[in-house]
């Protein structure tokens, strides 16, 4: 009984110690990330099969994506991944203010990413480079260009939704950090948020060359 009384409040009673609890939480997060990989995997398949069927169309249609904006967004997202990793490091060292600052930085870069995405989207919507039967742009000669934009909007759209959800979760752990919920002994939620955020970055690392840099 003496042993049980010594347990800190953040250690759930069904775990032997913090290491076991942390590992269980991380394992759960990785299993979730596996489902995320497979969710996006379906769309990577969508991309692969149609690109194999219509290589010339993909080559021609991708030129209407803005490489400068795509590259900027890649740098922005990598920077946000760096600040996220640094936020966790700061909490490992018990530096609360630094953690909050790095989380705020991550939120800022996530916001910049979405703003740039907004400009890209609105430009394409205006010109009619839209998915499926909404497509009305006349500038592409190859057949079936609407398929490329179906791929583009579903992949970047699902990714964008992930960025948005990530911002909500990062905001939430930031508030919890301010509330003194975390310490060097317990910062699991920040670490799991980090894993999610890095996966969002990881998916973009593949989306960017596949969509913007064909040939």
């Amino acid at each position: 009984m003496e042993h049980a009384e010594k347990k800190p409040s953040y250690l759930q009673h069904h775990f032997a110690d913090m290491e076991q609890q942390t590992d269980a939480a991380k394992l759960g997060m990785w299993v979730f990330l596996v489902t995320e990989v497979l969710l996006f995997g379906g769309l990577f398949g969508f991309y692969t099969f149609y690109r194999a069927w219509y290589p010339e169309m993909f080559m021609e249609a991708h030129k209407y994506l803005d490489v400068a904006m795509g590259t900027t967004n890649t740098f922005v997202l990598i920077t946000s991944s760096l600040t996220m990793a640094l936020a966790i490091r700061a909490m490992q060292l018990g530096k609360k203010k630094q953690t909050i600052a790095y989380l705020a930085g991550t939120l800022f870069f996530a916001g910049v990413f979405l703003v740039i995405k907004y400009f890209e989207y609105s430009h394409k919507i205006e010109l009619g480079m839209l998915p499926g039967k909404l497509y009305f742009f006349d500038g592409i000669q190859a057949a079936n260009p609407h398929i490329f934009f179906s791929v583009y909007f579903t992949m970047t759209g699902l990714h964008g939704i992930h960025v948005l959800i990530g911002m909500i979760i990062i905001g939430w752990v930031m508030v919890r950090t301010m509330r003194d919920d975390f310490s060097p002994e317990y910062y699991n939620p920040i670490e799991l948020t980090g894993l999610y955020w890095h996966l969002v970055d990881l998916i973009w690392i593949f989306l960017f060359p596949l969509l913007y840099l064909i040939g």
């Binding site: 590992d23 991380k26 394992l27 990785w30 299993v31 990330l33 596996v34 990989v37 497979l38 995997g41 990577f44 398949g45 692969t48």
Partner: peptide, 20 residues
Amino acid sequence: DNKLFMAVFLSSLIFLGLFL
């Protein structure tokens, strides 16, 4: 980290490869 996480993550890539 625990190498189990790496195994779990790599398994998703194996299944993705299989699927594609």
